[in-house]
Amino acid sequence: MTAQQRLNKVLEFVTERGNVSIADVAEALDVSPATVRRDLNLLAQQRLLTRTHGGASALGSGYELPLQYKLVRQADGKAAIAKAVAGLVSPGDSVGLNGGTTTSEVARVLGSSERLLARGSTPGITIVTNALNIAYELSVREHVKIVVTGGVPRSQSYELVGPLVAATLREFSLDLAVLGVDGLTGRFGATTIHEGEAEVSRQIATVARRVVVAADSTKLGRTTFARICPLEQIDTLVTDLPPAADVGAALEAAGVEVIVAP
């Protein structure tokens, strides 16, 4: 386990339990109390948790973890989802991607796809994104044309938000929008934690002919603060496990195609 992976697990454990002792974390992760103490101090310095006497407490259920602390969560499921989403993309397509761990994985698969290589002077694929990490990672791929929206970056997610994003997106027509979400339910549709990111995702969906939500099973049946769109505006859901009965019924009623990644 790398230091980053251990910090991730420590932070997840604290977030899930709310309040923990150093002994609790040491036992759960099979590491020494001294290592836990150093990790908790480091995470407290980064304002990701609150240090207490003999342990730590979470900042709150609505707190959004920075992107780097989400990278290894549901990794196998996200990889499978990304491959399935890439299968929906044809050579020459224009694809809108919002930010997040799942869409970042989609970008990696698209960037390494031989099927989408450029033909002559035509790019193999055009990616329009508000996520700085996705743009940076794909900038070295010769077959990918990258278009980055304007906007102001959020340090939590590397996403650009604000009115400049919408001004950029209004000039485009996309074949496909691939959206990562934090929650998906029948009542509230697709949701995310930050209202600015919800608005950007909504704008990306508005200028796309097909809207695909890429979400692992932990997001299904969950609602977060800011609404992106109702289920009726989603064409396809790509996930890693079959939805629960109530979510599945809502998706079917809304006409959403469900693809379970193998």
Rank of each mutant, 00 (worst) to 15 (best):
T2K: 10
T2F: 04
L7Y: 12
E16D: 12
E16F: 10
L29K: 06
S32E: 01
P33C: 10
A34E: 10
L40K: 01
N41C: 03
L42C: 00
Q46C: 02
G62L: 04
Q68Y: 06
K70V: 15
A75K: 04
G77C: 10
I81K: 05
V95S: 03
G100L: 00
T101D: 15
T101S: 11
T103F: 08
V106S: 12
R108Y: 01
G111T: 05
L116P: 01
L117W: 05
L117K: 05
G120E: 00
P123Y: 14
I125R: 14
T126L: 00
I127N: 03
L132K: 03
R141C: 14
V144H: 07
K145D: 08
V148G: 01
G151A: 10
A166Q: 08
A167Y: 04
R170K: 14
E171I: 00
S173C: 05
S173T: 14
S173I: 02
L176V: 15
A177T: 06
V178A: 11
L179F: 03
T185E: 01
T185Q: 05
G186M: 09
F188K: 06
G189E: 02
A190H: 13
T192N: 09
E199Y: 07
A205E: 10
V211P: 11
A214E: 00
S217L: 00
L231A: 15
L231V: 06
E232I: 03
E232Q: 11
E232N: 03
V238K: 11
T239F: 08
P242R: 15
P243G: 00
A245F: 13
A249R: 15
A249Y: 03
L251D: 02
V256I: 01
V256F: 13
I259L: 09
